[in-house]
Write a protein that binds this DNA or RNA. Structure first.
Length: 575
RNA sequence: CGGGGCGUAGCGCAGCCUGGCAGCGCACCUGCCUUGGGAGCAGGGGGUCAGCGGUUCAAAUCCGCUCGCCCCGACCA
């Protein structure tokens, strides 16, 4: 491809809308342009890279035995009502009506569609297992799109859905997907880790996230250098130190704390450390009211809390509820005397502590010297708080590390979460009709481009791994008006094309500096330069974007040499 | 949804406080010159100053409303 005939609008200055490197470079390099908040067009360079990622994903999915399909973006409300998610899904689900006033939405995910499809067609265990996938557009009306392709509203996703007769079969496919994902991300040149994750509203209990290390990532990876444990922040557990507190168990004593409500206020009013306070939080769930008791210096992890209780709805109780249950307004709540009114859930950390302070369930009063199991009996003791810096690894006791990452893949075991409500069943060998056991597996394909750039750039621009670079070679004719330079460049261009190498030939009537700047910006891995000096002495220059080392090669050997370098570069990303 | 910021040529911005010719750099077009790291000179084209309403002799500028975009937070299959 000749640059003079191409569409590659590069920007010299950083667009004001872009905050992080990947977003800036995608815009400056002419890879993407924004149409509306979180909605982007892919320009030729961006589309070429995106297609390369899509092809890697496709090859590895096919290799794993998954089968490609192509599902609708526009989906009728009925199937969402069937699965029960029409009302559960929030504003991310973009809804609209057709001309006949029927409800539709843009697909943010495709569980409903795939289950609806399969339930009509697959009847027998003999047709299982089945793993169907697709690569195309999803739309989620995100509250806050940001960082370019990292959190877009419209984005490209690979999603796969597997159907099984039993959990063992699901396990097998789940592991295959795990392997396929590992190969995909390696081929994309990504440095990543796999973490245990909460499965969230999509359901199921086990899930793993594939996280790319990136300082600008939105997710927090909690991991152990020593034993390799890793989890996302919501899921991460940690070691509870054995606390044996000295001293006697004292008798509770009310203290007057006028208008002193928050942990902060109580701590300074009574002049005690925050971790001596028992933070008491009342929540409303579908199974009734719950009182969570955690150390004053910790934060309740609602995901853990939900899992502990086996509930899906968890909302902070409002003022009236608190008043009715405890007899006092929020700010003075404590566990004593509430055993019969709410479920008391005590965090592990507090289990061995003595003589704590909590609210007195009486306006303007707190109680000193509360000891769990002595002055109140929790119904449950569990891990319900967020991990914090300084906490130790549950498995080996080493200090946990905190890093940022970008989630590029997520695999779930769904079980029968969708097949059951939607009545998707098959006839098993024993003649009994059973709901499919399902798995689902997503990859944020367009987001991968941003993730790759976050890991591969310098002050001059992007440094693409060759596997996903829009072109393999950038050929620079330093002065296109110099006949010799032009003729030799033309020949090299043809030679490279003949060899099937993807070459972008900068034949513009521009100064060399402009071409070098653009070459660095768009980050093509191999650059070949034909200049005046070289023409006189009979060589071209080959330079790698990553190393910037220059080697001189006689003109008639350039094709051979570039081919060789190119193969070596590819080898690097073989899984 | 809460807090903050911004909206002036394709991009980056000044002008606004203190109302009075709509500007600068880059990009674009023409010519000359130049051609190894975003050259130089000269000439030129391009504007609903986000939109609507108000105040005023006069509004990019002051006031009100609306919309869009960005950042922080909440939310996030």
């Amino acid at each position: 491809m000749r640059v003079s005939r191409y569409f590659m609008p590069t920007l010299r200055e950083k667009p004001q809308e872009a905050e992080i490197p990947s977003h800036q470079l995608l815009l400056r390099g002419g890879f993407i342009r924004k149409l509306a908040s979180g909605i982007y067009s892919f320009l030729p360079l961006g589309w070429r890279s995106l297609k390369k990622v899509m092809n890697i994903v496709r090859e590895e999915m096919d290799r794993s035995g998954a089968i490609e399909v192509f599902l609708p973006v526009v989906q009728p409300a009925e199937i969402w009502q069937e699965s029960g998610r029409w009302n559960v899904f929030g504003k991310e689900l973009l809804r609209f009506k057709d001309r006949n006033n029927r409800d539709f939405c843009l697909g943010p995910t495709h569980e409903e569609v795939i289950v609806d499809l399969v339930k009509g067609e697959v009847r027998s265990y003999r047709q299982l297992p089945l793993n169907l996938y697709q690569i195309h557009i999803k739309f989620r009306d995100e509250a806050r799109p940001r960082f370019g392709l990292i959190r877009a509203r419209e984005f490209v996703m690979k999603d796969a859905y597997s159907f099984h007769r039993d959990w063992d079969s699901l396990e097998e496919t789940y592991n295959k997907m795990y392997e396929a994902y590992t190969r995909i991300f390696k081929r994309c040149g990504l440095k990543f880790t796999v973490v245990e994750a909460e499965s969230g509203a999509i359901g199921g209990d086990v899930s793993h996230e594939f996280m790319v290390w990136a300082d600008n990532g939105e997710d927090i990876i909690v991991w152990c250098k020593k034993c390799g444990y890793s989890a996302n922040r919501e899921r991460a557990s940690f070691h509870v130190p054995d606390v044996i507190e000295e001293g006697d168990i004292l008798d509770p004593e009310e203290v007057y704390t006028p208008n002193v409500r928050t942990i902060e206020e109580v701590s300074s009013f009574l002049n005690v450390e925050k971790n001596r306070l028992l933070k008491s939080l009342i929540y409303k769930t579908e199974k009734g009211f719950v009182l969570f008791l955690i150390p004053g210096d910790r934060e309740l992890n609602e995901a853990k809390a939900k899992r502990t209780l086996g509930v899906t709805d968890l909302l902070m109780a409002d003022y009236e509820d608190v008043l009715r249950i405890t007899g006092s307004p929020p700010g003075f709540v404590g566990p004593v005397g509430l055993e019969d009114k709410v479920t008391l859930v005590l965090d592990r950390l507090v289990g061995g502590m003595k003589n704590l302070i909590s609210g007195a369930n009486k306006e303007d009063y707190h109680v000193k010297n509360i000891t769990p199991f002595v002055h109140f009996k929790p119904h449950l003791v569990a891990d319900i708080v967020f991990v914090e810096k300084g906490d130790k690894c549950l498995a080996c006791g080493s200090p946990l590390e905190f890093s940022r990452g970008i989630e590029v893949g997520h695999i779930f075991k769904l079980g029968t979460k969708y097949s059951e409500p939607m009545g998707a069943t098959f006839l098993d060998e024993d003649g009994i009709e059973k709901p499919f056991i399902m798995g689902c597996y997503g990859i944020g394909v367009s987001r991968i481009l941003s993730a790759i750039i976050e890991q591969n750039y310098d002050k001059d621009g992007i440094i693409w791994p060759i596997t996903v670079a829009p072109f393999e070679v950038y050929l620079v004719a330093t002065n296109i008006n110099n006949r010799e330079i032009r003729d030799i460049s033309d020949k090299i261009y043809e030679e490279l094309e003949r060899r099937g190498i993807e070459v972008l030939y900068d034949d513009r009537n521009e100064r060399a500096g402009v071409k070098f700047k653009d070459a660095d910006l768009i980050g093509i891995p191999i650059r070949v330069t034909v200049g005046e000096r070289g023409v006189k002495e009979g060589f071209a220059e080959i330079r790698l974007r990553e190393s910037q080392n220059v080697i001189k090669i006689p003109f008639d050997e350039v094709g051979e040499k570039v081919d060789e370098i190119r193969r070596e570069l590819y080898k690097r990303y073989e899984p």
